[in-house]
Amino acid sequence: MAKLYLLLLAVLCGFRTSAQQKPKMYFTDTSATGIMVAKDPVVVKFKGRYLMYYSKQVFRNSADGMQGWNIGIAESKDLYNWHKVAEISPEAEYEKKGLCAPGALIRDGQVHLFYQTYGNGPKDAICHAQSADGLHFTRDASNPIFSPKGDWTNGRAIDAEVYFYKQQYFLYFATRDPAGQIQKQGVATAKAGSNFGREDWKQASDNSILYPALDWEGQCIEGASVIKRNNKLYMFYAGSYNNVPQQIGVAESKDGISWKRVSDKPFLANGAPGSWNTSESGHPCIFEDEDGQTYLFYQGNNDKGKSWYLSNLKIGWTKKGPYILPNQ
């Protein structure tokens, strides 16, 4: 009986240790005193190194956390171990209250960054900047380059994702309903030769292309990240607001505008009690490496947003869509 008790205790302790164990990638930004925050990751491989752009909070002076955001830049050789190398701080008048939630793509030897202003409520909008070294960026003279119009939206645009598909660029963004309560996805397009300026983007739908409808999605769908597989697009998205918990879902599309969910369940749920991401697994970035392997980057925490960490999981694919590779 004593041996059986010890065996059961060991098993239970083992499960507890496993639940609390940190993942292989576990990155945060501690460069602002007393604040361990890294959110909203996007990753590119540029000139032989991996670069990750992310939101970092430099101060907290409001109850809703709507101010004090910069964009951090980290570097890695293996996609798991990262160190910070630079930071993008507000320069222009339109971003003086903060900038964050970057999206990124590489074209013609330049990193193009699509980021949002923050702290302006319905007036937050998408901006564009570009860089020859991935660290120092020149702002687009036409910034902000996009905000939605129509009676379906309050005019806000955040969480930009730009993806080239069927000879045009798709700009996916999150906006809110006119009352500012429901967060949902919209899309704009630009021609293949676009310079990504304000005049190039045309709203492709006068309605939401993905609206929260499932219980776990709550009142929010945001943070879209897109990849092409199986001759169609897959969108990894964040469902529900932060720490509700936010979890990650997947939708698919053949034309980039009409989307349907792959499943009514989260693709990546928040962690079990005691784990590093108990409060959420959110804001995805699906990254395709040069060898075709894919990694899902995401944010998480276990203290309701007092701190934030970034991690990743390796993703496999079948004709039915993505799946999380085992033993991670």
Rank of each mutant, 00 (worst) to 15 (best):
140 D>H: 08
162 V>H: 03
264 D>G: 10
85 V>T: 11
180 G>Q: 06
58 V>N: 10
301 N>E: 07
58 V>W: 02
259 W>P: 01
220 C>A: 14
98 G>I: 10
283 H>C: 03
54 Y>D: 01
231 N>S: 15
40 D>Y: 09
53 Y>V: 07
262 V>F: 00
246 Q>I: 05
234 Y>W: 08
288 E>G: 02
212 P>I: 02
92 A>H: 11
227 I>M: 02
227 I>T: 04
12 L>I: 11
200 D>H: 12
226 V>T: 05
271 G>V: 06
24 K>D: 13
28 T>M: 05
156 R>I: 15
223 G>S: 15
171 L>P: 00
308 W>Q: 11
139 R>Q: 11
108 D>I: 08
163 Y>C: 13
22 K>G: 04
164 F>A: 12
27 F>Y: 15
18 S>V: 12
194 S>H: 11
319 K>Y: 05
101 A>R: 10
34 G>I: 02
278 T>A: 14
294 T>Y: 09
265 K>C: 08
84 K>I: 15
5 Y>R: 15
112 H>S: 07
298 Y>D: 01
71 I>Y: 01
299 Q>H: 15
35 I>T: 07
99 L>R: 00
56 K>V: 15
46 F>H: 05
291 D>M: 07
218 G>D: 07
314 K>L: 04
101 A>E: 10
82 W>M: 06
309 Y>W: 15
156 R>N: 13
121 G>T: 06
313 L>T: 09
238 A>D: 14
125 A>F: 01
74 A>G: 04
83 H>D: 09
170 F>M: 06
305 G>C: 14
40 D>H: 11
309 Y>G: 04
198 R>M: 13
193 G>N: 15
170 F>D: 03
85 V>H: 05
231 N>V: 08
323 Y>Q: 04
167 Q>C: 08
24 K>V: 13
184 K>E: 13
239 G>M: 03
170 F>I: 04
246 Q>D: 09
20 Q>N: 12
81 N>Q: 12
237 Y>C: 03
130 Q>T: 11
237 Y>M: 04
21 Q>A: 15
15 F>L: 14
231 N>D: 15
209 I>H: 02
107 R>F: 08
233 L>G: 01
249 G>R: 08
77 K>S: 15
203 Q>L: 08
29 D>T: 07
27 F>L: 12
21 Q>C: 11
204 A>M: 03
257 I>Q: 07
